[in-house]
Amino acid sequence: MQSTFPLFPQAASSIASDVDLLYFFILAVSSFFAVLVSALVVYFALRYRRTHADEVGHDIHGSIALELLWTVIPFILAMVMFFWGADLYFRIARPPADAMEIFVVGKQWMWKVQHPEGVREINELHVPVGRPVRITLGSEDVLHDYYIPAFRVKMDAVPGKLTTMWFTATKTGSYHIFCAEYCGTQHSGMVGQVIVMEPNDYEAWLAGGRSTGTAVENGEKLFTQLACITCHKTDSSGRGPILTGVFGSTVDLQDGRQVVADENYLRESIMNPQAKVVRNYQPIMPTFQGTVSEENLLQLIAYIKTLKVAAPATAPAAAAPRGGQ
């Protein structure tokens, strides 16, 4: 746990020390310039103190060489910070292909978590140490933001779309989860703990949890209950497109565009079916807005992702979008 008066956060993810390194680099550069300029200002102000009432300063107007110097040096340093920060950001934004996936849905004012095995929890998040975890994040109402300071990661939960974040926890223990995007009355109460466990302990915890069916199983049930199955058949006789192998594929749309069927495409096609109609199909699908909760939606997507063409249903998804465009 944290000490009572910490000045620096715990570092408990694989990316944390990289973020801290960039922080110390910018801190060093900034401190150098802050001290340099402050010292010069105070020194000049004392050294060239006015000695009599009519005195004026020297007749100095400027120096092109100096202007170039103090334009170019800050520019170069700023570019170093840009490239370093951008490289780090891309690593933070792109989950590894073998990451385990956990669904998190924010709603005023709690975090609802679904593990792939079907175990659910609220506000807490149990994860195994040393294994990449990809969080697929949704929101049921307004903007929220899933923030784990000890891991140095955060991501907005945006109503109307799915976003992604990932981390590999490196130290067992429990760490704060905060909602970082203001979301109304109990914003500061929308907090929790991420509990990092040894893999064996995690398995034991999962086994002890009350599972209400895995996400895929629940998704499959919903697929039948909501009658998706009546139109989306496994052969071409259905009124809707075949969903086998659709995830990750490129889909031709009625208006001539092509889109990659990622999580956000599937989400949109369920909630707002007329937005992107597949070529050679009629825009007849009703919206499931209001019928399907964000959690159900994630289960449906999890199920659709398993519909592979003659391939094991457990193949991991390679591409993970960090939100739409």
Partner: peptide, 8 residues
């Protein structure tokens, strides 16, 4: 302004 740090 440095993106990777701004995430935190």
């Amino acid at each position: 302004g440095s993106m990777g740090l701004d995430v935190h």
